[in-house]
Structures are given as C-alpha cells and as structure tokens.
Computed example of a mutant assay.
Amino acid sequence: MTRSTKTFQDWSYEETIEKIEATVTRLEQGDLPLSAVLNEFENAVQQIRQCEDFLQTCQKQADLLIETLEDC
C-alpha cells in the first residue's frame, strides 16, 4: 500500500524534508562506508516518494476544492 492510499495524520512533510536534508549532509561529508551510503540513499529515496505522494494528494484536494468553487 502506498502512502497516497493512507492518511497522513501521523506523518509530517516538514520533518521528512529535514531527514532528507540531514541524509544529504551525511552523504556529502563522505565519511560513511559504502554499505551505509547505499542504506542512507535508499531511505532518502523512500522519503522522497512519501513527499511526492503527499504533494500529489494535496494537489488533488486543492483541485477538487477549486472545482467545487467554480461550480457555485
């Protein structure tokens, strides 16, 4: 089940972005062993997908609201 089919009430876009930024910083430092780099990268990709799903859900909600307003 993707994040887009779930509710987002226990998830924070802002906190996830902060985690991604922290991961990028760790990766840029170049101090991690390769296995850790791959792990960190995989986690960041999953977090980015969550953010994309969240933004798509928000866009759909906004489009629906706009459509509702236009029908008035």
Rank of each mutant, 00 (worst) to 15 (best):
T2P: 11
T2A: 07
T2W: 06
T2M: 12
R3Y: 13
R3N: 14
R3S: 15
R3D: 11
R3I: 08
S4L: 06
T5Q: 15
T5N: 15
T5M: 10
K6M: 13
K6A: 11
K6W: 07
K6T: 07
K6R: 13
T7I: 06
F8G: 01
Q9L: 11
D10K: 04
W11C: 00
W11L: 02
Y13W: 11
Y13N: 06
E14Q: 14
E15I: 03
T16M: 02
I17R: 12
E18L: 05
E18V: 05
E18A: 13
K19S: 14
K19H: 09
K19F: 04
I20T: 01
I20R: 03
E21L: 08
E21S: 07
E21R: 11
A22I: 01
A22P: 02
A22R: 03
V24I: 11
V24E: 08
R26Y: 04
R26H: 06
R26W: 02
R26F: 02
E28W: 04
Q29S: 09
Q29H: 13
Q29P: 01
G30P: 01
G30A: 00
G30H: 01
D31H: 11
L32N: 04
P33D: 12
L34E: 12
L34A: 07
L34R: 14
A36S: 08
A36R: 07
V37N: 01
N39Q: 13
N39S: 15
N39Y: 10
N39K: 13
N39P: 03
E40M: 07
E40C: 05
E42M: 04
E42T: 12
N43D: 14
Q46E: 15
I48D: 10
R49H: 13
R49V: 10
Q50R: 14
Q50V: 02
Q50Y: 06
C51S: 04
E52C: 06
E52R: 10
D53L: 00
F54N: 12
L55A: 08
L55I: 13
Q56I: 10
Q56A: 15
Q56K: 15
T57F: 08
T57E: 14
C58Q: 15
Q59K: 13
Q59D: 15
K60D: 09
Q61L: 14
Q61N: 15
D63F: 04
D63N: 07
D63K: 06
D63H: 02
L64Y: 12
L65Y: 05
L65R: 05
L65F: 06
I66C: 07
I66L: 09
E67C: 01
E67M: 03
T68C: 04
T68N: 12
L69W: 15
L69F: 08
L69V: 05
E70V: 08
E70F: 02
E70H: 08
E70M: 03
D71P: 02
C72I: 13
